[in-house]
């Protein structure tokens, strides 16, 4: 069952990492166990719930259905990296103010997806927000507060762009 371990090197949150891993180790387990980046959560282990969503080379991906050996040479950003760089601080603040999280287990994934949505569509309507985030399950909030928070950030960012245009 165990096959030969392999050396992989990649960038995680801007830090170069070289680790020897089993080929069967998922990226989610690699981040959590090898790098102790426990902000990436494992919910369903089958790519359905979205709790493990991270960013790989600028695109969101499900870390539970990708093997660590598959991201050799890639740039991975997790919730820890995004929080420290402050790249979506406004989303985090809006989630906080609107209580768009309860238990918080889905939240890192929800934030990663929301951030990606706003880079692709700066003026999403509520339905577009719902559709983009529909692969991220939340069991606590009923989702409305999350839609509100993302909508608020989109509007605030647009207003800021509008001011700059003036």
């Amino acid at each position: 069952m165990t096959t030969e371990k392999r050396l992989i090197s990649l960038s995680v949150n801007g830090e170069l990492q070289a680790k020897i891993v089993e080929p069967r180790m998922s990226l989610a387990d690699f981040l959590r166990i090898e790098l102790e980046l426990t902000g990436t959560h494992v919910g369903c282990e089958s790519g359905v719930c979205g709790a493990c969503t991270v960013n790989i080379n600028g695109q969101t991906a499900r870390a539970c259905t990708i093997l660590a050996v598959q991201v050799e040479g890639d740039e991975v950003t997790t919730i820890e990296g995004a929080s420290e760089s402050g790249e979506f601080r406004d989303l985090q603040d809006a989630f906080h103010a609107r209580n768009a999280l309860q238990c918080g287990f889905c939240t890192p994934g929800m934030l990663m997806m929301s951030a990606e949505l706003l880079t692709q569509n700066s003026k999403p309507c509520r339905q577009e927000i719902r559709e983009y985030l529909s692969g991220n399950y939340c069991r606590c909030t009923g989702y409305e507060a999350i839609v509100d928070a993302v909508e608020t950030v989109a509007q605030t960012r647009n207003a800021r762009v509008g001011e700059q245009d003036d």
Partner: peptide, 21 residues
């Protein structure tokens, strides 16, 4: 009022049982 303890969860700094080592 917002929940003070929600901030750590928003930053990926929660401490769930599986995070215990």
């Amino acid at each position: 009022v917002p929940r003070p303890n929600a901030k750590r969860l928003l930053n990926g700094r929660g401490n769930y049982t599986d995070d215990t080592k």
